[in-house]
Computed example of a mutant assay.
Amino acid sequence: MANPWAGEVALTLDGEERVLKLTLGALAELEANLETGTLIDLVARFEAGKYATRDVLQLIVAGLRGGGWTGVAEDLLRAEIKGGPIVAAQVAAQLLAVAFTVPERPQESAP
């Protein structure tokens, strides 16, 4: 189970739930593989809704690798992602959100 407090997001890949996380190493690998711009540019594309499928793929690969997966991007070309491309894009956006924001703690109710 993914822990958003630890920057984790879940994705079901080929019927197996995987935990994705953008570790520092995964972020460095992601930035090295970006075809355009920096991580800040990538975040801006997602915020503006102007991301490309390669952005989604690269984020998913980076998150999977940060979660311990040893595959490569080409492995995802044949993989079944539960929920399809829409869920993949949502997971990619969630990865960015949990990697670069601190979740708010729930308010404790007064006695």
Rank of each mutant, 00 (worst) to 15 (best):
M1F: 13
A2L: 00
N3I: 02
W5P: 01
W5H: 10
A6H: 06
E8L: 04
V9W: 02
V9R: 11
V9P: 01
V9Q: 13
T12I: 14
T12R: 14
L13N: 01
L13F: 05
L13H: 01
D14S: 13
G15I: 08
G15S: 09
E16D: 11
E16W: 08
E16N: 10
K21I: 01
L22T: 01
L22N: 06
T23E: 06
T23C: 06
L24K: 12
L24V: 13
L24P: 11
G25F: 04
G25M: 07
L27V: 08
E29M: 10
E29H: 11
L30G: 06
L30S: 02
L30F: 03
A32S: 14
E35L: 14
E35Q: 13
E35T: 13
T36A: 13
T36F: 13
G37M: 04
L39W: 00
L39H: 00
I40V: 15
D41C: 00
D41Y: 04
D41K: 06
D41L: 00
V43Y: 07
A44F: 02
A44Q: 13
A44V: 03
A44H: 11
F46T: 01
E47W: 03
K50A: 12
T53Y: 15
T53H: 15
R54W: 10
D55E: 06
I60M: 15
I60A: 10
A62L: 06
A62W: 05
A62G: 08
G63V: 00
G63D: 01
L64K: 03
L64P: 09
L64M: 11
R65I: 00
R65F: 00
G66F: 05
G68R: 02
W69N: 02
W69V: 05
G71P: 08
V72M: 09
V72F: 05
V72Y: 06
V72H: 10
A73L: 06
A73P: 08
E74L: 12
D75H: 09
L76F: 09
L76D: 07
L77H: 12
A79S: 12
E80C: 03
E80F: 09
E80Y: 10
I81P: 09
K82I: 04
G83I: 11
G83T: 08
P85L: 09
P85K: 08
I86C: 07
A88V: 04
A89L: 09
V91N: 00
V91K: 08
A92H: 05
A93M: 08
A93Q: 14
A93W: 01
Q94F: 07
Q94E: 15
Q94V: 03
Q94P: 00
L95G: 05
L95T: 02
L95H: 02
L96F: 07
L96Y: 05
A97E: 13
A97L: 14
V98M: 09
A99I: 01
F100P: 03
T101V: 12
T101E: 08
V102N: 10
V102T: 14
P103I: 00
P103W: 11
E104H: 12
R105P: 08
R105E: 15
R105W: 14
P106S: 15
P106H: 15
P106E: 15
P106F: 13
Q107G: 14
E108N: 15
E108L: 15
E108A: 14
A110F: 12
